[in-house]
């Protein structure tokens, strides 16, 4: 009888060992199979602000580029970059390329002025409109020169522009601008449409493009 139990125990131990030995292979198979089933939920659970860039080319190659960047990531990452003109999240502006235009004075003038149209050009070639509206600086260009029209629309909150120029005279504070941008609601910043490309830059709380 005792001998029977011993054999039973021994068999159980062997089976248990075999199962234990094989179980990591199962885990491994799951681990390696995981990348294939990549249709995970990408819904952002937090209140993160994401900057999206989407470029759709309608040429023969039909290229599509989608870039999604969390603003917080960009804010933390930029100060770590020290390359050429970029230091501590700020970009040095070369005065030689500014044609003696005092950007700070220009921005200050725009900030303090009331809403209105600053530049309006209407011609057969193109329409240009630069305006301040609801605390946003708006630039709209419609190129009519070719039969294939192209349209550019830029809409930047004034707070972002203020933050951008909040550093020294010859610097743009990118981190401060991103921080100011993160406080904004969902908004479209840049839209470019021409016969070949459609470009969109916008801000929202989703970590995926439309």
């Amino acid at each position: 009888m005792l001998n029977r139990y011993k054999v039973l125990f021994a068999r159980t131990a062997l089976i248990a060992t075999a199962v234990l030995l094989l179980s990591p292979l199962g885990t491994l198979a799951q681990a390696t199979a995981a990348p294939a089933s990549s249709s995970q939920s990408t819904a952002s659970a937090s209140k993160d602000r994401w900057l999206h860039v989407r470029v759709i080319s309608s040429d023969a190659k039909g290229e599509t580029v989608r870039v999604n960047v969390p603003l917080e990531l960009a804010e933390k990452l930029l100060p770590a970059i020290h390359q050429d003109r970029i230091h501590d999240g700020k970009v040095k502006i070369d005065n030689a390329h500014m044609n003696d235009v005092d950007l700070h004075a220009l921005v200050d003038a725009i900030r303090t002025t009331k809403d209105g149209e600053f530049v309006t050009v209407q011609s057969n070639d193109c329409d240009v409109r630069v305006a301040k509206q609801s605390n946003h600086l708006i630039v709209h260009v419609l190129d009519k020169e070719n039969s294939k029209k192209s349209e550019v629309e830029v809409k930047v909150p004034m707070k972002v522009i203020d933050a951008l120029f909040s550093a020294g005279k010859d610097e743009l504070d990118i981190v401060a601008a991103l921080h100011a941008l993160s406080a904004q609601g969902d908004t479209e910043l840049v839209s470019v449409k021409d016969h070949e490309n459609t470009v969109r830059v916008w801000l929202d709380s989703k970590n995926v493009t439309d």
């Binding site: 995970q40 990408t42 290229e63 599509t64 580029v65 989608r66 870039v67 999604n68 995926v208």
Partner: peptide
């Protein structure tokens, strides 16, 4: 779990 860059052409 996020997509950061996606580039597609033919």
């Amino acid at each position: 779990d996020s997509e950061f860059v996606e580039v597609d052409d033919h």
